[in-house]
Structures are given as structure tokens and as C-alpha cells.
């Protein structure tokens, strides 16, 4: 059985510039269908309707941070088995390990290079389904 196709990505990010560049990179370069949410609560509300294959989640969000949003998303039955990838500017090994222990598929360091973001995401997707 091959890897299922990665088509829809939900990106949760509050910074407008990063929203734009991530959307463009993932849509134009990666050919994915992308939805952007600016906050955790918005993601929790929209995710079941959008039905993402994978979720990119910023760790430092206002109100509800990345780990809190992750916990809320995990409670949604529609998102069962959907890999979540953290994006964070903090990449100390200890911190990354803690995030991985929370059950995220991987951690992408910010600032990321938009040219390689889609490949990065695809590689994570393939590894998850390996």
C-alpha cells in the first residue's frame, strides 16, 4: 500500500507576513490546497469542515498557544490520525524533544526557507506514512 496523497494543509499562524509566504509556497510551489487560521480557536472551529490531511501549527500564538491548540484539535474525532507539525523559533534540543513528546509529527524551525517548505512538509508526510 502506497503513501496516501497529501492534498490539504491547514496552517495556523498569527503573523500576516508568514501567512502570506507560507500560503504562496504551499500553494504555488507545493500544489497543495491551503487554509490559513490566525488563532487556535479559529483552527479548532474550521479544521473539521476543511478536513486537512496535515496541520502546520505555530507554537507561539496569542490567547491559545500551540500546545493548547494541539490538545483541543486532538479532541476532535474528525481529525483523528491527522499529523500536526509545530513551527517554532525555539529550536533548543530539549524544547524540540518536549514538543515531540506531545505527539507532533515533527518540528519545523522558524524562520523557514519558503523555497524548501513544501518539500519539508512532504518529507514529513512520507515519513509519517512509512
Amino acid at each position: 500500500m502506497g503513501t496516501p496523497e497529501l492534498r490539504r494543509i491547514l496552517c495556523v499562524e498569527d503573523e500576516p507576513d508568514i501567512q502570506t509566504v507560507a500560503r504562496m509556497a504551499l500553494e504555488t510551489l507545493g500544489g497543495f490546497e491551503v487554509a490559513i487560521c490566525g488563532t487556535g480557536p479559529e483552527a479548532v472551529e474550521r479544521a473539521p469542515r476543511f478536513g486537512p490531511d496535515l496541520i502546520l501549527l505555530d507554537v507561539m500564538l496569542p490567547e491559545m498557544d500551540g500546545p493548547q491548540t494541539l490538545a483541543a484539535l486532538r479532541r476532535l474525532p474528525e481529525l483523528h490520525g491527522v499529523p500536526v507539525v509545530f513551527m517554532t523559533a525555539k529550536v533548543q534540543p530539549g524544547e524540540v524533544r518536549r514538543y515531540l513528546e506531545l505527539g507532533v509529527a515533527d518540528v519545523i524551525a522558524k524562520p523557514f526557507d519558503p523555497m524548501v517548505l513544501p518539500q519539508r512538509v512532504r518529507a514529513i508526510w512520507e515519513r509519517v506514512h512509512d
Binding site: 508568514i18 509566504v21 507561539m60 522558524k110 524562520p111
Partner: peptide, 16 residues
């Protein structure tokens, strides 16, 4: 937050 957001976006736009 302002500083953090700037740090998170600069390199992505080519300004490390």
C-alpha cells in the same frame, strides 16, 4: 510579540 514575529519572518523573506 512584535520582536518575535519579526524574528520569525525576516529570513523567510530573505533578510536573515
Amino acid at each position: 510579540r512584535l520582536a518575535h514575529n519579526l524574528a520569525g519572518s525576516g529570513t523567510a523573506f530573505g533578510f536573515p
